[in-house]
Every structure is written in structure tokens, then in C-alpha cells.
């Protein structure tokens, strides 16, 4: 990997870089891995116009962001999936209200922050649809997406539509497929720890998509 990365955002454990409009990330914690991210020891030297030479990387690849295909989803989680709308209470009720009145497309960019909760919901939804092998092309319009929401969010939605996801969500997919005790709970807790409402909105969107698909199958 080589090129002129511009430093876009710097957080405590993550730096987001931009190249040709795409997000790339350097992360300290493997749990923050996602599409186009690298695990690094330190973010201290990260500066604008960064050059990364893959030859100098100790661990070139440790995370595969491809969404696996669900063979079958154990029915034991149905009751959990059906709770999707209950997750949209308090400050997230605006999502339900908007969904009700204006449909999925209106969720794009809805809510404060760098990943508006509406985008988190839609991302969770697209990942679920991908995972279950369903068609999703008409759920939202991807035209001019970057003008309708934040840069980070639009990348996240494109990634989901392309079948790529983040470490924490992949853990949930695997746990749900395996149906092992405690694993699903752990995975959901991990997701909840991403931002104040992000995790909750993501889970809600994911559950929503699965329960809608389940009700047709």
C-alpha cells in the first residue's frame, strides 16, 4: 500500500486517512479493525501526506472484512430480532418516526455526530441483507450519498453495500451462526461500546432486516 494519504480525523485509538475519496484507518485496537484498516503500534508519527510502505509492516493482514454468507440462522434468536423497534426509544425514536413517515431513504444522515444514527441503522440493515444473501439494491438510493451524509458514514454505507464490514459486527454474525451461549451477548456488548447511540442504532437496523426477512421465509 503506497500513496498520499491525507490525515482526516485523529482519535485516541484511531486515525482516519483519506485517499481518492476513500477512508483508510490506522488503529491501535484490533477490535476497531474494518475495511481498509491497518493495525499499528503507535499513532504518534501519523501526519498529513503519510506514506505507508507495506514492506515495513509487521502484520500485513489480520482481518478479513468480507461478510460471510449465513448458512442458516438458528431460530432461537427470533425473539431478539423482533425487539429491533424497542431499541429505537429515547433519543433514537426520531428514526422510527422518520422511517414510519418517509421510508428508509430519509434515514440517510439523520441524527447528530460523525456517524448519524440513521446511517448506523442502514449500515446494520445492509450487512444483515448481505449476510442473508438478499437483494438490497432498492432499499436506499446510493446516488450522491456523500452529499447527503458525513464522509465517514457514506464510506461505511458503501462498504456495507459492497459486502465489507467491521470486526465487531463480523463477530456478531459469527456468534449468531454458531448459536453459542454467551457469544452473542458478548458481541452485542462490544457493538454497544461503539459510541453513544451508534451501536444501538446499528443493532436495531440489523435486527430489523433479519426479522423482516425471517417473516417472509
Amino acid at each position: 500500500m503506497r500513496g498520499d494519504f491525507h490525515l482526516k480525523e485523529r482519535y485516541k485509538k484511531t486515525c482516519n486517512l483519506i485517499l481518492d475519496g476513500w477512508r483508510f484507518s490506522l488503529v491501535l485496537d484490533y477490535k476497531d479493525m474494518g475495511p481498509r484498516s491497518l493495525l499499528v503500534d503507535s499513532l504518534d508519527d501519523v501526519a498529513d501526506n503519510l506514506l505507508i510502505d507495506s514492506k515495513n509492516l509487521k502484520v500485513p493482514v489480520i482481518y478479513d472484512p468480507n461478510i460471510p454468507q449465513a448458512s442458516s440462522i438458528p431460530r432461537r434468536w427470533d425473539a431478539l430480532f423482533r425487539e429491533w423497534y424497542m431499541l429505537l426509544d429515547d433519543e433514537l425514536e426520531v428514526l422510527l418516526f422518520t422511517l414510519d413517515n418517509d421510508g428508509y431513504d430519509a434515514l440517510v444522515g439523520l441524527g447528530p455526530g460523525s456517524t448519524p444514527a440513521g446511517d448506523d441503522f442502514l449500515t446494520g440493515m445492509h450487512i444483515a441483507l448481505r449476510w442473508m444473501g438478499h437483494n438490497f439494491e432498492n432499499v436506499i438510493s446510493f446516488r450522491n450519498l456523500e452529499s447527503r451524509t458525513t464522509w465517514f458514514s457514506s464510506c461505511m454505507l458503501y462498504d456495507a453495500a459492497c459486502g465489507l464490514t467491521w470486526y465487531r459486527s463480523k463477530k456478531l454474525l459469527e456468534a449468531l451462526s454458531r448459536g453459542a451461549d454467551g457469544e452473542v451477548e458478548d458481541a452485542l456488548n462490544e457493538l454497544m461500546s461503539t459510541g453513544h447511540t451508534s451501536g444501538r442504532a446499528w443493532i436495531s437496523g440489523f435486527f430489523h432486516a433479519v426479522s423482516v426477512c425471517n417473516s417472509f421465509s
Binding site: 425487539e83 456488548n189 451501536g199
Partner: peptide
């Protein structure tokens, strides 16, 4: 920041 199910049925699917 933990995930808590919202219903008895949801809880029972987890435990």
C-alpha cells in the same frame, strides 16, 4: 454500554 434485551422472550433467547 451493555446490550440488554427489551423483552422476556429476547432475554430467554440469550439465556
Amino acid at each position: 454500554q451493555q446490550y440488554f434485551p427489551k423483552s422476556l422472550n429476547g432475554a430467554l433467547s440469550m439465556l
